[in-house]
Design a protein around this nucleic acid. Structure first.
Ligand SMILES: [Mn+2]
Ligand SMILES: [Mn+2]
Ligand SMILES: [Zn+2]
Ligand SMILES: [Zn+2]
Lengths: 149, 149
DNA sequence: TTAATTATTAGTAAGCGTTATCGATAAAAT
DNA sequence: ATTTTATCGATAACGCTTACTAATAATTAA
């Protein structure tokens, strides 16, 4: 028999999951912490990390290790990729998957048994392109702020 | 006139560049540090980071921020992607670029002005697949070691 | 040539995000 | 009821990277 460790649905774990599900974008651990703290003022950041980790291991959520920036978490457990706005920081789902013919070609040329793919795209979102054209072109926005568009 | 800061080619910078170019794989800053120290025993790790940073800014090398693991550096300044072996840690170049038709579709569906793409693939390299089939299947290798295949 | 300015250095401290440790607590199993 | 186990909050430690500092060497200005 498989010896899977039993997981309790503690109030902390439940609320972390609820808050993550309510946030439509892809929050970081500390962003989730800030939200959860409004309901559980005595929770610790370590507890948030620990639960996000176990929820991800269990497959309830996804952990997104980003290239060069802070880890984020995702309620969407389907395989999908992400696109990020360089101006406002928005991180959106990419609905379209990579063409399987391309992956096949990769297997042929490199001989790898592919287990996973991480695809991250950066650019300027439609809203920011608009803003740029309309008013001033100066880079006066904080790129680290989460996009509210 | 563009006010580009003048860069001196110091012995440190020169040797860092030389050593990075000699390492065929994609070393981390501390791996480069270890190599450079054999020739400049008094160099500091900060100097290595600082120079790798400025060399990348200047376009002489590429900085590779990996998803979930340590930053690496690349002598290959051409746009290309990477594939990593989950068993031996090898990090190889992927010669084949993403099909442009796919990128076009992405622009159409999301309306982004795409500036860059980070693609990272994990799997098992041909050598490791062989090894696995031949002898024992136990995971007895250090995944963090750099592949010597 | 001499003096002032600037880039760079080695050494080290600080920063940041994440993980590990620990004694306490509460749920589950026996 | 007793033991075992998962989890908690608090906090220290960790790994990688960046920032600070006084000293030094290269460049520019006088
Ligand atoms: Mn997503
Ligand atoms: Mn490469
Ligand atoms: Zn935007
Ligand atoms: Zn391998």
């Amino acid at each position: 028999m498989v010896h899977r460790k039993f997981q309790r649905m503690t109030p902390q774990r439940k609320i972390i999951l609820e808050e993550l599900r309510q946030l439509r974008f892809h929050p970081t651990a500390d962003e989730i912490y800030d939200r959860v703290r409004l309901r559980l003022p005595r929770i610790s950041l370590g507890t948030v990390y620990r639960n996000l980790e176990s929820l991800a291991a269990q497959g309830a959520i996804r952990k997104l290790d980003m290239a060069g920036s802070q880890r984020r978490f995702d309620v969407n457990t389907e395989l999908h990729h992400h696109i990020r706005c360089l101006r406002c920081g928005a991180l959106e789902d990419v609905s379209v998957g990579l063409p399987s013919s391309w992956e096949d070609m990769l297997v042929d040329t490199h001989g790898y048994d592919i287990q996973g793919v991480h695809l991250e795209i950066w650019g300027f979102c439609p809203k920011c392109l608009e803003d740029r054209d309309r008013v001033n072109c100066q880079e006066n926005t904080d790129h680290n702020e989460t996009c509210t568009h």
